[in-house]
């Protein structure tokens, strides 16, 4: 299984997203790098609307990820309730 990664800006808006990722992807590895947060996981990584919304206390739209996203590696699957990156193999 290949590793997917997600790089987010190290800004306030990213915090509930990172917390939600940790909850929904227990095996994800979160690393701080200059001005960015790099998250890696085996096979797939999901960001769920409900979890982020609970973390932040406001409704979070998966498309809001565009405001904090730097880069990623993997295929994208996005819908109203989640944002997911994955490798198929």
């Amino acid at each position: 299984m290949s590793t997917v990664f997600l790089a987010l800006q190290d800004v306030d808006d990213s915090r509930p997203v990172v917390e939600a990722i940790k909850k929904d992807n227990p095996s994800a590895v979160v690393e701080s790098q200059p001005a960015m947060i790099r998250i890696t996981a085996e096979g797939e990584l999901v960001v769920k609307r409900e979890t982020v919304s609970n973390e932040s206390g406001t409704d979070w739209d998966p498309q809001d990820i565009h405001l904090i996203l730097i880069s990623f590696g993997g295929n994208v699957d996005e819908d109203d309730d989640y944002f997911k990156i994955f490798w198929q193999d």
Binding site: A7, Q9, A35, L67, L69
Partner: peptide
């Protein structure tokens, strides 16, 4: 990523900002 992370590491917040703002489009 190296350019902008490097900019942050060297105290250049202006470049980090336009870089990461552009990079969110790159995604």
């Amino acid at each position: 990523v190296p350019f902008m992370s490097g900019a942050a590491y060297n105290g250049d917040m202006s470049t980090v900002s336009f870089g990461f703002s552009a990079q969110s489009d790159e995604a």
